[in-house]
Design a protein around this nucleic acid. Structure first.
Lengths: 79, 79
DNA sequence: GTGTGACTGATAGTCCGTC
DNA sequence: GGACGGACTATCAGTCACA
């Protein structure tokens, strides 16, 4: 499993858990809507600076987005 | 703490624990010598594809490189 | 609300070198 | 062995139009 794959999956999971659209997540993270779409389709190898802003919008630590499995309770705690 | 800062510190710690030079790490990870130097000086925001190859060379999971603190026992286990 | 192609500007990453 | 610079190329990343 590559980090790119893990990011794509975790992004979808966490975004769904927060009930956010790609559009609203993009707006909060200060990036473009179609770029969030591209990341969820593994199209890009995101830089860790972007990872920081995306993680902040989702309310998790940046490294969590790259894990094989989300830590227990992550989705529940995310409000 | 940004991911860039955490990476710089963890890279130095793990590389020292393995007794590797910047040059040998770069060679094993398939990246350039001066780029490893730049990452340890926070000069760049590395992409997650490179993060994967660097982590593999150091014998850790990619996300570990972005953590505030290395999991207990990481440096000892690294041989 | 999301996927995709096309196009461009920004920056990640290489390769040369010196100290 | 490592810091740092300049010049370069590849890829990331921003924005649009359209389905």
């Amino acid at each position: 499993m590559s980090s790119r794959d893990n990011l794509a999956r975790n992004l979808r999971l966490l975004r769904a858990a927060k009930g956010m659209s790609q559009e609203s997540l993009a707006h909060e993270a200060g990036i473009h809507r179609t770029y969030v779409s591209a990341l969820e389709r593994r199209e890009y190898s995101v830089s860790i600076d972007r990872l920081d802003s995306i993680a902040a919008s989702l309310g998790v630590q940046p490294y969590v987005l790259l894990m094989d499995e989300l830590p227990r309770g992550t989705l529940e705690q995310i409000s």
